[in-house]
Design a protein around this nucleic acid. Structure first.
Lengths: 339, 339
DNA sequence: CTGAAAGCGCTTACAG
DNA sequence: CTGAAAGCGCTTACAG
C-alpha cells in the first residue's frame, strides 16, 4: 500500500527545527546553517521525505514541466527528437508533457488551454504542421516557446532549424555536378518554413548553375502525396533523371515508386532526401541525404528554452545549424566529389 | 504579456457569490442551484477563468497526469503507440508525462522518484526492456500501473499484450504449410515475456507439426544483434529456408542481410515478422507479419488504467488481443491459404 | 540564521 | 443549496 504521505512538518518535528527551516534546506538559493542542513537532511533521509513539486509549483509558478506539441510521429525524425529532448530535459530536472495536436482550429484552442492550465514553464513546438497561431499565442501569454525544426518569418519567436536554404543549395550543386540534366523537386509543405527554405536554396542554386529544373511539386511532407507526385513525374513525358525530395520520409516513398515502375534508383533516377533518419542508412534504401544534426538541434533547443525560462527578458533567437550531405547509393556521385 | 492570473475569488466577486460556490460549479459531482451555476458561468466566461489544476491536484491528489515510461523509440511500434495513447488519454482529460528510462539501476531509481514526485495518477510502462522492478515498485506504492506490450508472469499487475503464444503458433503453421523444411527463429529478447511467448508458441506448434527447427538465436529486439544472427544463419552449413523474426524492427535487418548476401527474399528465404508497423507495408520490405492490433491494445490499456484509477480496489487484469497474420511478399504463401 | 505567520488557489466538511 | 472556515504542502517576506 501507499506509504502515508510525509511532509515538511514531519521532518521538522523529527529534526527539531521549524517547518520553514526544512523548506529552506530544500529550496535552492535559500540559506541555512550547516548544523540545520545536517539535521534536516538526516531526518528527511530517515523518513524518505521529498518536497511536493505540486505545492512548490503553485507558489513559485514553476512546474518544471515543458509542453511538447507534436502532430504525427510517423516520420521517424520526430520520435527520435522526442526521445532526445526528453533525455536532455530530464537531465536538467524537467519533464515533457506531451500534447498531440490535430490541426483543427478547435484542437488548437484546446491544446492552448491545456498548456495554460498545466502551467508549463516552457513550450517546444515540434510539429511542422502546427498552426503558427498556437505558437504566437503561447508567446503572447508570456510563456517561453521554441519552435523545433520550424521557423517563422518575422515574428519574434525563437526557433532551431538546420540551415535549410544552404542545404537546398548543397543538394543542387551535388546533382548538377553529377551531370543530371532533368532535375525535379518534390518539395516539403509550402506552408512550412523548412519546406520553403529548402526549396528556395535548391531553386536559386540550380538557376545560378544553369541546371535544368523540370518540375516542382508540393509533397506536403506526406508519404501518399509524395508517391503520387513521383508517379506523375515518372509517367510524364519528360521523366527526370534526379529528384530532390523535401525529407527522407517522402524520399522513401519516391524510391518505392521508382522500383514499382521497374526503374533503377541512381542509374535511372537519382534520389536525394533530407534529414538522415536511421532508416536512410538501412540496406533497403541507402538514401543519399542532407543530414539534420539532430543532437545539436536538440541541445540548442534545450539551451535556448532554459535560458528564456531563467531570464524572460532575453530576446528570442533563431538558430540555424549546418548539416552535411551524406553520400550513399541512391544518387549518382560526381567524379572526384569529396567523400 | 501574461494576463494577470484570475482566480475563483475574482469570479465570486463578479458573480456575487462565495468562493466556495464558484468552486462547486467547477467541481464535477458537487451541486449548486441553477441560478448560481448560471451566474458563475457567466462571470467565469467574462473573466476567462479556468480552475488551476495544480491547486486542485494538491487537494484531491489527482493530477490528471499519466506517466509513460519508454526506452528506445527507434522501433516504430512505440512512437505510434505513444501517439495513440496520448490522443486517447487527451480525449479523457489526461495528459502524458514522458519518462525516458535508461536501464541502469540508477536510472530506474530516478524515474521512480520522479514518478512519485509528480504524483501521476497512473503509469503505463511501454518499454519491453524496462526493469520489472520499476513496475512492481509503482504498484507497491499504490499507483495504478498497466504494462503495455509486456506481461509479467505471476505478479498481480495489469498488462495488455497481443496473443503472443497464439501468434507464434500461427506463424509456425503458416511456414510449415508453405513447405519450408529448414526453419529458424531469431527471437525477441528472452528476458521479455513477449519474446518468450512468441518463441514458445512457435516452437511448440512446430514440434506438433513435425517442422524442422534448425536454430534459435536471441535477437534481443536489436537491429544489429539480429543482423549478426542472420549472417550466422545464412553463412552456416545448414542455411534456413525460412526465418521467423521476433519483431518487424529486427525483420527489416534480416531482409537487408539476405539481400546483402545476394539471396532472394521469399524465393530463397522466407521472412515473417511480428508487429505490422507501417514500414512493413512499404515497397522496400513488403513484410509478411503477425499484426499487433495497436488501436485495440491502446484502447484496452487506457480503459484498464482509467478503471483502476477510478476504483483502486479493482483487481488487475491481463488482457490479450488476438492479431491476424498479414500476407505480403516476404514469405512463400502456401497454396490455397486463405487470404 | 531562524521561527511564526501569511498566502499560493483550490476542495470539502461543517453549520445553517 | 450556500457561506465561513480549515487545510492541502509548500515558499517567502517579516521580525528577531
Amino acid at each position: 500500500m501507499a506509504e502515508a504521505k510525509i511532509t515538511s512538518h514531519d521532518v521538522a518535528r523529527l529534526a527539531g527545527v521549524s517547518q520553514s527551516a526544512v523548506s529552506r534546506v530544500f529550496t535552492p538559493g535559500a540559506s541555512a546553517s550547516k548544523a540545520t542542513i545536517a539535521k534536516v537532511r538526516a531526518a528527511a533521509e530517515q523518513l524518505g521525505y521529498r518536497p511536493n513539486p505540486l505545492a512548490r509549483a503553485m507558489i513559485t509558478g514553476k512546474s518544471r514541466i515543458i509542453g511538447l506539441v507534436v502532430a504525427y510521429l510517423d516520420n521517424q525524425f520526430y520520435p527520435l527528437a522526442l526521445e532526445r529532448l526528453s533525455n536532455a530535459l530530464q537531465a536538467k530536472g524537467y519533464h515533457i508533457l506531451v500534447f498531440t495536436a490535430s490541426n483543427s482550429q478547435d484542437g488548437i484552442e484546446r491544446v492552448f488551454q491545456d498548456l495554460m492550465d498545466y502551467q508549463v514553464d516552457g513550450i517546444i513546438t515540434a510539429s511542422v504542421a502546427m498552426s503558427s497561431n498556437l505558437t504566437e499565442r503561447c508567446a503572447a501569454a508570456g510563456i517561453p516557446v521554441v519552435m523545433f525544426n520550424r521557423g517563422q518569418p518575422g515574428a519574434g519567436l525563437s526557433s532551431v532549424t538546420s540551415a535549410n536554404v544552404e542545404g537546398g543549395r548543397k543538394v543542387a550543386e551535388f546533382l548538377v555536378a553529377g551531370g543530371h540534366s532533368r532535375i525535379a523537386h518534390i518539395a516539403g509543405w509550402h506552408g512550412s518554413s523548412t519546406g520553403r527554405d529548402r526549396r528556395r536554396g535548391f531553386v536559386e542554386a540550380l538557376a545560378a548553375l544553369e541546371g535544368n529544373l523540370v518540375a516542382i511539386i508540393d509533397g506536403m511532407y506526406d508519404r501518399e502525396v509524395a508517391a503520387k507526385a513521383a508517379r506523375v513525374l515518372i509517367d510524364g513525358s519528360n521523366r527526370p533523371d534526379a529528384i530532390f525530395v523535401g525529407n527522407d520520409h517522402m524520399a522513401f516513398a519516391v524510391i518505392d515508386v521508382i522500383r514499382e515502375r521497374n526503374l533503377r534508383v541512381a542509374d535511372d533516377i537519382s534520389v536525394v532526401g533530407y534529414d538522415d533518419v536511421p532508416l536512410a542508412a538501412w540496406g533497403a534504401y541507402n538514401l543519399t541525404t542532407l543530414r539534420q544534426p539532430l543532437n545539436r538541434m536538440v541541445d540548442a533547443t534545450v539551451d535556448t528554452l532554459l535560458a528564456q525560462i531563467n531570464d524572460p527578458t532575453r530576446p528570442s533567437q533563431k538558430i540555424e545549424i549546418d548539416g552535411p550531405l551524406i553520400l550513399r547509393t541512391s544518387a549518382r556521385v560526381p567524379e572526384g566529389w569529396p567523400r
